[in-house]
Amino acid sequence: MDVLIDLQPQMWQAAGETLVIVALTLLFGGIGGLAIGLGLYSSRPGGIMGNRSVFTTLNVIVNVFRPIPFIIFLAAAQPLARLVVGTGIGNPAIIFTLSLAASFAIARIVEQNLLTVQPGVIEAARSVGASPLRILFQIVLPEALGPLVLGYTFIFVALVDMSAVAGYVGGGGLGTFALLYGYRQFNPLVTWAAVLIIIVLVQVVQFFGNWLARKIMRR
């Protein structure tokens, strides 16, 4: 217990780092995933801007990168991280690589949620002379907003999970903290403390996500 009290500053710093990593990843990956997801949705054959070659290209890219285990992807994408953010290690590298990996997962979630919008609703928008882009941003996105919020909440939880391996490339956060001070120093209590913080964090975000989605869907 004493160890934990001594480690308090490191623990709260680690929690803060996890939050920053996940928040920035959710922002960058969220935007990237939204863009790819919108592309997948609208280029789908028979979709609002159906284009088989665009759809196939995006689909193959997503399918190739999404199944790579993140810890391997992190190592494999290191040269790219150096090129883009100037370093292959530390928090900037993990935020970059995590955003990239998350984009592909988010793209699928966005695509799936947009596909739940009733075709009839889109037909109604077409029947009043709306252009495909108008339909996408003024009809499809608002109609799917509730499920999208739930999808992003789900992704937040997945990102907390993925960010735990940041220590692998010299990044911080609760994962690094638990490994460094808990596991390696034979202090299970420290590990459990990190677990507890993660549980609380996830619960709070999930609760907020559910609340927001309910508010949007008015249920």
Partner: peptide, 22 residues
């Protein structure tokens, strides 16, 4: 793009109403 202008002059209603729920 020209067809879109034509559609502005034609209204349509549907069996399942197809209202924008949002």
């Amino acid at each position: 793009s020209e067809l879109r202008r034509v559609r502005l002059g034609i209204g349509m209603i549907f069996q399942q109403f197809n209202l924008f729920s949002a």
